[in-house]
Design a protein around this nucleic acid. Structure first.
Lengths: 212, 212
DNA sequence: GTCTATATTAGGATAGAC
DNA sequence: GTCTATCCTAATATAGAC
C-alpha cells in the first residue's frame, strides 16, 4: 500500500477510535512508526487528511445512494438498504461525533455534507412513496415529508445518540437499532395489520441483533 | 455581580456563540477586560468553568422537569412545557454542539447527563400516558416507549441538527421547530380527527414562529 | 482581587541531511 | 521518501508585585 493510503487508513482508524480532536499528527505518525516530517511530506497536516477522508466518504455514500433500487416491500430488502447507508456512515463515524465542530472548521464541507443529508432524505422519500403507491401505508404528503425529514435526522444523529444512550453496543448492533428506529416509524401508517407488522419487525430486529 | 459570576456568564455566552473548542481562557479574560492571571485566581482553567456551568444547567433542568404538571390535553399548554425544556437546553447549547467530545473529556458528566436525558424521557412518557388515559390517542406500550425514546433523542440532538439543517434560524424559531417535530409524532395515533389536529398543530406552529 | 511577567507544554510545521 | 532536528505558535498555568 502506498504511504499516502496508509496514512489515510491509520488516521481514519485513530479518529474513529479516539475522536478526531484527541489525535494529533504526531499520534498518527507514531502509530505508523514514521517520523512526523515524513507525514508532513505526504499531507500538510490534519486538515488535508480530514478533507481527503471526507472525499472518500462522499464518493462512497453517493455511490450507495445512487444505486438503482426497485424499492421492494419486503422488510429484509429495505432493512439491508438502510443498513448499508448506516454502515457507510459508521465507517466515517468520527465525523459524526464532532459534526458541529468539523463543519464549522472546514466550511467548504458544510455545503457538501448538507447535500448528502438531502440525498438521504430523497432516498427515504422514495421508499415511503413507493409504500404509499402500493397502498401499504396511508399518509398525507405533509406526513410523508415530516417522516422523511425525521429519517434524515436519524441517519445524521444516530452515531452520537447511540453511543450516548448505549455506549457498550458493537457497531453492527448500533446500526441495527438505528434501522429499527427508522423503520418503526412506518408502523402507525400501515393500512392494515399494524400489530402484526410491528411484531414481525421486532422479531426481525431481534434476529439481526443476535447475529452480531 | 461577583467576579466569579461574571466569568461564568461571559464564558457561557462565548461558548454558545463561538463553540467551546474555539474559546480559550485568554479569550474569556480579554472579553472581560481582565488579566488571565486574575481569571486563574477564580477558576483553575476551562475545566472547572465548564463543570460549574454544567452544575447550573443540571439544577435548572431538574427544576424544570420536576415542576408539577397536570399534563393538560390542550396543545398550547403542552407546547409551552416542551418549549421551556428546550429553552433550558438552548441556554447551554454549547454543550450540545460538542456532546461527544465534552462527555468523554469530563467523564463524571457522562452519567449525570444520561440521568437528565432519562428524566426527559420519563416526562414525555407521562404526557403520552395521560393522552392515552384520556383516549385521545391509541397506542400500545411498545409504541409509547418507542415514541418516548425518540422524544428524548430529539431533545438531545435537536440543537445540532437544527443548526445544521437551518443555520439561519433564531434560537426561538429553532425551538419552535423542535417542539413541532416532537409534537407531530402524536398525530398518527390520534383516535379521531387526525387531519384536523395536524392542521391545528401546523397553524399553531406557524403562529408561534411568526411571533419570534 | 487584580495585575504583569514569565514558564510550560503540546501541537503544528519546516529545513536540510540522507 | 524518509529521517532528525528545530522552530513557531497558541493555550495553559504559575509566581510575585501591588
Amino acid at each position: 500500500m502506498k504511504t499516502k493510503d496508509r496514512i489515510l487508513k491509520t488516521s481514519l482508524a485513530l479518529f474513529n477510535e479516539e475522536g478526531e480532536p484527541n489525535v494529533s499528527t504526531v499520534d498518527i505518525a507514531s502509530e505508523l512508526e514514521m517520523s512526523p516530517g515524513n507525514l508532513y511530506y505526504h499531507f500538510k497536516g490534519k486538515e488535508p487528511i480530514i478533507k481527503s477522508l471526507y472525499n472518500d466518504y462522499e464518493v462512497e455514500m453517493l455511490d450507495v445512494l445512487s444505486a438503482p433500487i426497485n424499492h421492494p416491500l419486503r422488510i429484509d430488502d429495505n432493512w439491508i438498504y438502510m443498513y448499508i447507508i448506516f454502515e457507510e456512515i459508521y465507517d466515517f463515524r468520527f465525523f459524526y461525533y464532532n459534526l458541529a465542530e468539523l463543519l464549522s472548521r472546514y466550511d467548504t464541507l458544510s455545503m457538501r455534507f448538507t447535500r448528502l443529508v438531502d440525498a438521504k432524505r430523497k432516498s427515504m422519500t422514495a421508499i415511503y412513496q413507493h409504500l404509499r403507491d402500493q397502498d401499504v401505508v396511508v399518509m398525507s404528503d405533509e406526513e410523508l415529508s415530516v417522516i422523511a425529514d425525521r429519517c434524515s435526522m436519524m441517519f445524521t444523529m444516530w452515531p452520537t445518540w447511540s453511543r450516548l444512550s448505549n455506549p457498550n453496543l458493537t457497531v453492527p448492533q448500533a446500526i441495527h437499532n438505528g434501522v429499527y428506529s427508522i423503520f418503526s416509524q412506518v408502523t402507525p401508517f400501515l393500512s392494515a395489520g399494524r400489530e402484526e407488522f410491528q411484531e414481525l419487525l421486532a422479531s426481525f430486529h431481534a434476529h439481526m441483533m443476535s447475529k452480531t
